[in-house]
Design a protein around this nucleic acid. Structure first.
Lengths: 114, 114
DNA sequence: GTTCGATTCAACCATGTGGTTGAATGTACC
DNA sequence: GGTACATTCAACCACATGGTTGAATCGAAC
């Protein structure tokens, strides 16, 4: 559906594969925050948090915007929707609706790669 | 809910952050496969595929079982459900139901860490 | 324009990743 | 028990990651 889906999923899942980054994402889901605000609750240097934010930004999970001398970070949730759509393919496999599974398997497996 | 949720999500999302591993997962979703079967369509050595499977197995996304001289790999979909549950928290943010979002934000953000 | 606060950059370090090759293991078959 | 096949292990490589520290940048305020 989307063009280079695989590379996008790479960066999204990679960004989510770190507990600090998931925590940052959760923190920022409560509303816009400056980098300093985001760093404060974590036992990390600002530079480290800045790097994590760069990973989240590369995956477009957050967006930055300068406001005065602050960098304001906000959640970009629709990107998580892409991960959700990838997962959706497997939903029939953990739900108990085996008939749905059978029907599911007749379809082509959604072309992410190649 | 689960004990060390964060570490599990780390390994799950990390496993999903590679296109080869996502492809292997999709391949194995069509039914049990030997390692050789799984390796064939990919332009990789068997050893490389074996390593990828080890990552998927560490995340418990697949399970192995010896059958004769073959290693049979099968999907363990319920683990994907854990990733799905993590994502569920963010669903209100990309859906347009902003009233749901407001209600959502009043709740505690689900304790994965600390 | 200097100083202060917020953030990033650069260099460095230890460790992990994804791949290779070639040897080793394990099971089946004759 | 030897041979063939399926898979893994070990060693190696180049490169990415997650963290640090200290210098550099950028905007605001005096």
């Amino acid at each position: 559906m989307v063009e280079s889906n695989a590379a996008r999923l790479d960066s999204i899942f990679h960004a989510l594969a770190d507990p600090t980054r998931r925590a940052l994402l959760r923190d920022v889901s409560a509303g816009e925050k400056s980098v300093g605000d985001l760093a404060r609750p974590h036992a990390l240097t600002l530079a480290a948090v800045s790097k994590h934010l760069k990973v989240l930004e590369a995956a477009e999970l957050v967006a930055r915007q300068r406001r005065g001398s602050f960098q304001i970070v906000r959640l970009n949730a629709p990107v998580l929707h892409e991960a959700d759509e990838w997962l959706a393919y497997y939903r029939p496999f953990w739900s108990t609706r085996l008939d749905a599974l059978a029907q599911h398997l007749e379809q082509e497996p959604e072309g992410e790669s190649r």
